[in-house]
Design a protein around this nucleic acid. Structure first.
Length: 218
DNA sequence: TGCCAGGCCGGGT
DNA sequence: ACCCGGCATGGC
């Protein structure tokens, strides 16, 4: 996996993720991008930013319908409005709206608390932990799963925790590595590992394919 | 034109 | 402990 990491860095260069100017913006993006194209999320975030609503306090006071209308481009907008408000309510109650204050709590405790919020699952929680709070955790997503399965690293039935364990046990436990690794896997996924296409000819990770048999689309 | 995008929840087996 | 339908917009 170290070789995979080095290969990706050589091919892609550092990604400097997550796109976003503040920890709160990153957390909002993590919720909005659930099963959604980032381009649509960017629109929603631009709407919020334009009105100076991209802060915990401002969003906390925003009426449901107004928030819903602004994030509409991100899809599932009524659902995501609830999820954003759940998160912001927790952030205000627990940390007085300060994302920075989150780093004073242990990773495992913070993860449990995030998972207890309705609308925040394992990927969103880990994204916030890694990219907004700088806790060393690996983020699993659809690309991670697809790439790992297609390269024969793990069985197709593998769940979130299986994949998380797979990568974490093979990578150093530091924020910058886990950050870059996930970011680079997403780039690879978008570029070379589309669904329905088993052809990974152009993929820089091709040398790391197992030599036992053809690739099956998950 | 359908398929897809950086999931998660709730109800039913 | 899984399995599935629902949730919604915009680009290709």
């Amino acid at each position: 996996m170290e070789d995979v990491f080095k290969t990706l860095v050589t091919e892609l260069g550092p990604q400097r993720w997550w796109p976003g100017d503040s920890p709160f913006e990153i957390a909002v993006g993590a919720i909005l991008t659930q099963n959604t194209n980032w381009q649509n999320v960017a629109r929603a975030i631009a709407n919020l930013k334009q009105r100076d609503l991209l802060s915990p306090r401002a969003m906390h006071q925003l009426p449901f319908d107004e928030l819903a209308e602004l994030i509409r481009p991100a899809g599932y907008f009524r659902l995501k409005t609830k999820r954003l408000m759940n998160f912001v309510r927790w952030l205000m109650d627990r940390f007085d709206g300060s994302m920075d204050a989150m780093s004073g709590v242990s990773q495992s405790t913070l993860r449990e608390e995030l998972l207890a919020i309705n609308g925040i699952g394992p990927e969103t929680a880990d994204s916030i932990l890694l990219y907004a709070v700088a806790k060393p955790t690996f983020v699993v997503d659809a690309y991670t799963h697809r790439i790992a399965v297609r390269h024969g690293w793990i069985e197709p039935e593998a769940g979130y925790e299986d994949l998380k364990d797979y990568f974490e046990s093979r990578l150093p436990d530091d924020v910058s590595t886990l950050n870059e690794m996930h970011a680079m896997l997403v780039v690879i996924g978008k570029r070379f590992c589309r669904p329905r296409e088993a052809r990974c000819d152009q993929c820089p990770l091709k040398p790391f394919l197992p030599d036992h048999g053809p690739l099956m689309p998950e």
